[in-house]
């Protein structure tokens, strides 16, 4: 069932799927796809298909979770049973609880939660089809959904992973590279005004040297900028039609 370990990851400077080291998988982003959510996004990153929904700010239930000084943020990463090759038992497991936690922390650093005391902002991300890097795909989708919901943020979050295979660093790894590679590093950045401001998520699994980490960061930044452009385009495409230009009426009847 699972792909077996290939003998070589890189042949003639090309990866298994024909990409170069610093090339992303094809990405498709669409904003505002769900009617009942305040904001939503459908995103495809390689074979990943994820859908994100944002609700809020809304009332907190149960009440005792309420914070009188700021909004609370809840993030749920969930994989559909049919998203992986072997059916996954529904419900949260250790991995998805951890991903939800780190992703929530990433968004807590950019959402202006002090503007909405005693309320909650709920982010739900569902993986419909999983490939490597589903957590980065989810972060990208959630970021677009939050903008679509009109939630105030300091900037946008863009996420991408870097892996090490056959001693080389590659951008946006696919399944084989992730499963049998030497290291896997998901990154997420806060991007403001078209510039990378800070790191909001950084994880690593595997073995790399100090220099390789620096190199991986450079590679991830480059990939993140490309994804950021696509995220922007997806939102603008949806809203360029909207013109409340001629209106500035605040007068009431």
């Amino acid at each position: 069932m699972l792909a077996s370990k290939p003998d070589k990851f890189i042949i003639d400077g090309k990866r298994l799927d024909g990409r170069t080291f610093d090339q992303l998988r094809p990405i498709k982003i669409e904003a505002n796809v769900l009617k009942r959510a305040d904001g939503s996004c459908l995103l495809e990153m390689g074979k990943n298909k994820v859908v994100a929904a944002v609700y809020g700010p809304r009332e907190v239930h149960p009440r005792h979770l309420q914070d009188p000084s700021k909004a609370i943020i809840r993030y749920r990463y969930n994989m559909a049973p049919f998203s992986v090759e072997e059916r996954k038992r529904p419900g949260p497991d250790r991995r998805s609880i951890e991903i939800s936690k780190v992703s929530k922390e990433a968004f807590e650093s950019v959402i202006m939660k002090e503007l909405f005391p005693r309320s909650a902002i709920d982010i739900f991300v569902e993986v419909l089809q999983a490939d490597a890097g589903s957590r980065t795909a989810c972060l990208n989708a959630a970021s677009v959904a939050l903008v679509d919901a009109g939630v105030p943020m300091r900037g946008m979050i863009t996420s991408v992973a870097v892996a090490k295979v056959d001693g080389v660093l590659v951008l946006d790894p696919m399944k084989e590279e992730d499963n049998f590679g030497e290291a896997d590093l998901p990154f997420a950045f806060l991007i403001r005004n078209g510039r990378i401001e800070s790191i909001v998520l950084l994880q690593m699994d595997g073995c790399i040297t100090r220099d390789e980490l620096k190199q991986a960061l450079r590679l991830a930044k480059k990939g993140a900028m490309e994804i950021y452009k696509l995220q922007r385009e997806a939102i603008l495409r949806r809203y360029i039609l909207e013109e409340i230009d001629e209106l500035s009426g605040d007068e009431n009847a």
Partner: peptide
């Protein structure tokens, strides 16, 4: 000065604001 929400950029000589396109009622 940065935008914090998605919206339309409105600029006058003394003031800039972002007219929201989405969001709940606050």
């Amino acid at each position: 000065v940065y935008a914090k929400i998605l919206g339309l950029f409105d600029q006058t000589e003394t003031h800039i604001k972002v007219i929201p396109l989405k969001g709940r009622y606050i």
